[in-house]
C-alpha cells in the first residue's frame, strides 16, 4: 500500500511537471488564444479588449495557476473550435480511444504470444524464421499503410466491417466493437510485431534454463512445460513491454483515428493542433500523459502479482 501511495505521488509530481511544460510551450509559441478567436484580420483594440477579459495580460504564473486550479477542480475551460466545455468533450473521446487501445492490445497479445512461443520452441528452425519474418514485415510497414489496406479489403471489397466512424459502447456495444475493429487491427499489427520478438527472445532464454530441464526430467508433458512452467516466467517481461507500448499507441492513434474518422483522443488532438485550439491542446496532452503513466503503474503492480520475487517495498 505504501508503495502504491509512493508511486501515485510520483505520478502526480510528474504530471504537474508535464502540465507546466505544456503550458509554457503553448504560451511561448507566437499567437495566443485571443488571436485564434478573432482571426489575424481583427482590429487591435478589440483584440486587446479580449486579451484583457481572458486574463491573457496577467503574468504567466498567474495564468498557469488559474489553469491548473481549473484542471484540479474539474473546470477544464472551453474549447475554441468545438465551443464546448473541454471536460465532457474529452471524457467521450477517452472512451473511444480506450476502446481501440485495449482492443489492439488484445489482438496483438493474442497473436504475438502463441507466435513468439512457437518461434522459441522451434528456435533456429524454419518456424523461427517464418515467425521472425512475419514480425519484421509487420513492423517495417507503417500503421496507416495497414489501415488503408484493411479498409480496402474488409470495408470496400468484402464489405464485412464499417470503414469509419465511432459508436459509443454504451449505446450499442456490438456496433462499437465493429467500428473499432479495423483501426484496432491496424494498430495491433505493428504492436504484434514488437511483442512477438519480445516473447520469442524471453521464451527462448527461459527454455534454455535448468528448471525447464528439471520439469521435463519429472516427466511432465511438453504442453505443461511450455505453457505453464515457461510461460509463467515470460509473462512478466512481455507485459512490461506491452505496457510501454501504450505510450507508443497514443502516438499512433493520431494518424489512425484520423484515417478511420474515429473520433477519439487522437482525432481530437489532431483537430486541436490543426486549429491552434490552445486550451484543448494543453488538456489532451495532459490526459494522454496521465493515462500512459497510470497504465505503466498498473503493469508494474501486475508484474509484482505474477512474480513472487518482486516484493513491493
Amino acid at each position: 500500500m505504501h508503495y502504491i501511495a509512493n508511486r501515485l505521488l510520483s505520478v502526480a509530481f510528474t504530471l504537474l511537471l508535464i502540465s507546466l511544460i505544456t503550458f509554457l510551450v503553448t504560451n511561448i509559441l507566437p499567437g495566443d488564444v485571443a488571436m485564434v478567436i478573432m482571426g489575424t484580420q481583427s482590429n487591435p483594440e478589440a483584440l486587446a479588449g479580449l486579451r484583457e477579459s481572458l486574463g491573457l495580460n496577467d503574468p504567466l504564473i498567474a495564468q498557469y495557476g488559474r489553469w491548473i486550479t481549473g484542471i484540479l477542480t474539474g473546470d477544464w475551460g472551453r474549447s475554441l473550435v468545438f465551443k464546448e466545455a473541454i471536460g465532457p468533450l474529452i471524457a467521450d473521446k477517452v472512451v473511444a480511444s480506450a476502446l481501440i487501445v485495449v482492443m489492439s492490445m488484445c489482438i496483438a497479445l493474442a497473436a504475438a504470444i502463441p507466435l513468439g512461443i512457437w518461434a522459441a520452441v522451434h528456435r533456429d528452425k524454419w518456424q523461427d524464421n517464418a515467425a521472425s519474418t512475419t514480425a519484421l514485415f509487420g513492423v517495417s510497414l507503417p500503421d496507416f499503410f495497414w489501415g488503408i489496406m484493411l479498409i480496402l479489403l474488409f470495408a470496400r471489397y468484402l464489405g464485412w466491417l464499417p470503414s469509419s466512424g465511432f459508436v459509443h459502447p454504451a449505446d450499442d456495444f456490438v456496433a462499437a466493437v465493429r467500428h473499432a475493429f479495423l483501426p484496432s487491427l491496424a494498430l495491433g499489427l505493428g504492436l504484434m510485431a514488437h511483442l512477438t520478438r519480445m516473447t520469442r527472445s524471453t521464451m527462448s532464454s527461459i527454455l534454455s534454463q535448468e528448471f525447464i530441464r528439471v520439469a521435463r526430467a519429472k516427466g511432465l508433458t511438453e504442453r505443461t512445460v511450455i505453457w505453464r512452467y515457461a510461460l509463467a516466467n515470460a509473462i512478466g517481461p512481455v507485459m512490461t513491454v506491452a505496457g510501454l507500448q501504450v505510450g507508443y499507441l497514443f502516438g499512433s492513434i493520431i494518424v489512425i483515428e484520423s484515417l478511420f474518422n474515429f473520433t477519439g483522443m487522437g482525432w481530437l488532438t489532431y483537430q486541436a493542433l490543426l486549429n491552434r485550439d490552445i486550451p484543448l491542446i494543453q488538456s489532451t496532452v495532459f490526459v494522454i500523459a496521465a493515462v500512459v503513466m497510470l497504465t505503466n503503474l498498473v503493469v508494474d503492480l501486475l508484474y509484482a502479482a505474477v512474480d513472487p520475487r518482486i516484493k513491493l517495498p
Binding site: Q209, E210, F211, V214, A215, Y229, A232, N233, V306, D307, P308, R309
Partner: peptide
C-alpha cells in the same frame, strides 16, 4: 539456483 521454477 536455477533448477527450480522461480514463480511456483
Amino acid at each position: 539456483m536455477t533448477s527450480l521454477n522461480p514463480v511456483f
